[in-house]
Amino acid sequence: MGQVWKGFSSYTVIGVANTLIHWQVFFLLSVALDWRQARSNLIAFCVAASFSFYMNALYTFDHKLSVGGYLLFMAAMGALSYGVGHLGDLWRLHGLLTVALFSALSLVLGFFISKYVVFREHAA
């Protein structure tokens, strides 16, 4: 069981910084510019995830950076980001609830997508 969660603490620390970036950009776009939550959440995710992808590749997974891995991560997690934002719009959720829900989902799902898909170890 320990191997499954190996790297999760480092991923979480980087995730806290990611969350601060994400939430600030989200609220700037959704409150200051009055954009819809779906678009605000997606753009905020792209900004924050670019930072965390780089940091996790170096420090959490000790893995070489790749454009393909970056695009795969951004597509999978970006779809989740847009979907949660869309539900926030549809259900008229407060923006804080929308980004909190996305942050919780992306912490766990993002870790497993990163570990087992994007930065997976290849058999030698």
Rank of each mutant, 00 (worst) to 15 (best):
residue 51 F to D: 07
residue 63 H to Y: 11
residue 30 S to C: 09
residue 7 G to W: 07
residue 89 D to Y: 07
residue 43 I to S: 03
residue 18 N to I: 00
residue 32 A to H: 08
residue 12 T to A: 15
residue 102 F to W: 04
residue 88 G to Q: 06
residue 86 H to T: 11
residue 85 G to N: 11
residue 116 Y to H: 14
residue 124 A to G: 09
residue 43 I to A: 10
residue 36 R to K: 13
residue 26 F to H: 05
residue 51 F to G: 05
residue 8 F to W: 04
residue 120 R to V: 11
residue 16 V to T: 14
residue 123 A to Q: 10
residue 103 S to W: 08
residue 62 D to A: 13
residue 56 N to W: 02
residue 68 G to F: 12
residue 67 V to A: 14
residue 51 F to A: 12
residue 95 G to L: 07
residue 16 V to P: 09
residue 109 L to H: 11
residue 62 D to M: 06
residue 52 S to K: 08
residue 12 T to F: 15
residue 54 Y to H: 12
residue 50 S to G: 12
residue 105 L to S: 13
residue 18 N to Q: 13
residue 57 A to Y: 03
residue 76 A to Y: 11
residue 7 G to T: 07
residue 106 S to K: 09
residue 88 G to I: 07
residue 76 A to Q: 13
residue 44 A to L: 04
residue 95 G to W: 03
residue 115 K to P: 04
residue 67 V to K: 12
residue 109 L to M: 14
residue 57 A to T: 06
residue 118 V to K: 13
residue 117 V to E: 00
residue 34 D to F: 06
residue 60 T to P: 08
residue 87 L to Y: 10
residue 18 N to W: 00
residue 48 A to F: 00
residue 93 L to S: 14
residue 84 V to M: 06
residue 103 S to T: 15
residue 18 N to A: 11
residue 109 L to R: 04
residue 67 V to S: 10
residue 84 V to G: 04
residue 1 M to W: 12
residue 100 A to P: 01
residue 102 F to G: 00
residue 116 Y to T: 02
residue 79 A to I: 15
residue 55 M to Q: 05
residue 26 F to K: 03
residue 2 G to R: 13
residue 81 S to H: 02
residue 70 Y to G: 02
residue 48 A to H: 00
residue 84 V to S: 05
residue 30 S to M: 06
residue 74 M to K: 03
residue 67 V to L: 15
residue 30 S to F: 06
residue 20 L to E: 00
residue 43 I to Q: 01
residue 66 S to F: 01
residue 15 G to T: 02
residue 26 F to N: 02
residue 53 F to D: 08
residue 8 F to R: 01
residue 81 S to R: 02
residue 70 Y to I: 06
residue 111 F to M: 07
residue 12 T to Q: 02
residue 57 A to R: 10
residue 105 L to P: 07
residue 63 H to R: 15
residue 58 L to D: 04
residue 74 M to V: 12
residue 119 F to A: 08
residue 83 G to F: 06
residue 26 F to S: 05
residue 59 Y to C: 03
residue 33 L to R: 10
residue 88 G to K: 07
residue 60 T to L: 08
residue 52 S to L: 04
residue 58 L to Q: 14
residue 96 L to M: 10
residue 73 F to A: 15
residue 115 K to Q: 13
residue 21 I to T: 05
residue 66 S to W: 01
residue 84 V to I: 15
residue 57 A to H: 09
residue 123 A to F: 06
residue 90 L to N: 09
residue 88 G to C: 05
residue 118 V to L: 14
residue 11 Y to W: 13
residue 48 A to W: 00
residue 76 A to C: 15
residue 47 V to M: 10
residue 51 F to L: 09
residue 56 N to G: 08
residue 69 G to P: 05
residue 32 A to V: 05
residue 77 M to H: 01
residue 87 L to W: 10
residue 56 N to L: 06
residue 8 F to V: 01
residue 59 Y to Q: 04
residue 80 L to A: 14
residue 20 L to R: 02
residue 22 H to T: 01
residue 94 H to A: 14
residue 41 N to P: 00
residue 76 A to E: 10
residue 49 A to C: 01
residue 64 K to W: 04
residue 78 G to E: 03
residue 40 S to P: 02
residue 109 L to N: 11
residue 10 S to Y: 06
residue 29 L to C: 05
residue 103 S to H: 08
residue 111 F to S: 11
residue 39 R to K: 11
residue 64 K to P: 09
residue 92 R to F: 04
residue 111 F to A: 10
residue 39 R to I: 14
residue 59 Y to S: 08
residue 43 I to K: 01
residue 20 L to Y: 05
